[in-house]
């Protein structure tokens, strides 16, 4: 029994056929699912970005403010709306808002810089349900190509303080 010492020479007991078969199937399956991740990485079209840079929250805030001032076309719910050309675009999570609101064009390629000016935030695009982390000290660059027009909301899905549930944002694709 499992609660008493095993019989002598337990390590010499041969593994029976059924156990061997099960372990073999499990091992093959484990190797298969291990291979999926690199396979998708090379042949799939939707992988987490590997591009990131160190940036202090203060500096990132300044970059976003400059970007916002340059491309501002209006305001919605007190949040500035920007209409930038394809290329580098910026979004920041700050307690408790995602800013600015981005106007993007379907089919164009953007380098979306994602970071936080204070706490750790979760960047969740609704209703597409894609999720990335916005971590202070890190500029996370996601290369994106919107392929559908419409309004997409951003939900913060990492707890970032008392007003966490009010933290939303928007991306408008035309």
């Amino acid at each position: 029994m499992a609660i008493t010492s095993p019989e002598r020479l337990w390590w010499k007991q041969p593994v029976c056929g059924q156990e061997k078969l099960w372990i073999s199937i499990a091992l093959v399956w484990c190797i298969f699912i291990t291979a999926i991740m690199p396979y998708w990485h090379f042949f799939g079209k939707q992988n987490p970005s590997q591009e990131y840079y160190r940036v202090s929250p203060v500096k990132y805030g300044a970059i976003v403010d400059k970007f916002t001032a340059k491309h501002k076309v209006g305001e919605e719910a007190g949040i500035p709306v920007v209409d930038p050309p394809p290329g580098d675009i910026f979004i920041a999570g700050s307690q408790f808002v995602w800013h600015p609101i981005l106007k993007l064009k379907s089919g164009r390629t953007y380098r979306l810089h994602l970071s936080s000016t204070d706490m750790v935030h979760g960047f969740s695009v609704y209703p597409m349900n894609m999720n990335f982390m916005a971590v202070p000290d890190m500029d996370y660059v996601l290369t994106i190509q919107p392929d559908k027009a419409g309004e997409f909301f951003i939900i913060c899905n990492e707890f970032c303080g008392g007003g966490h549930h009010t933290m939303t944002g928007k991306i408008i694709v035309s």
Partner: peptide
């Protein structure tokens, strides 16, 4: 725990 699937599951 798969990188690509984690995109649609993380923190949800």
């Amino acid at each position: 725990g798969t990188e690509q699937i984690n995109i649609i599951a993380h923190n949800t």
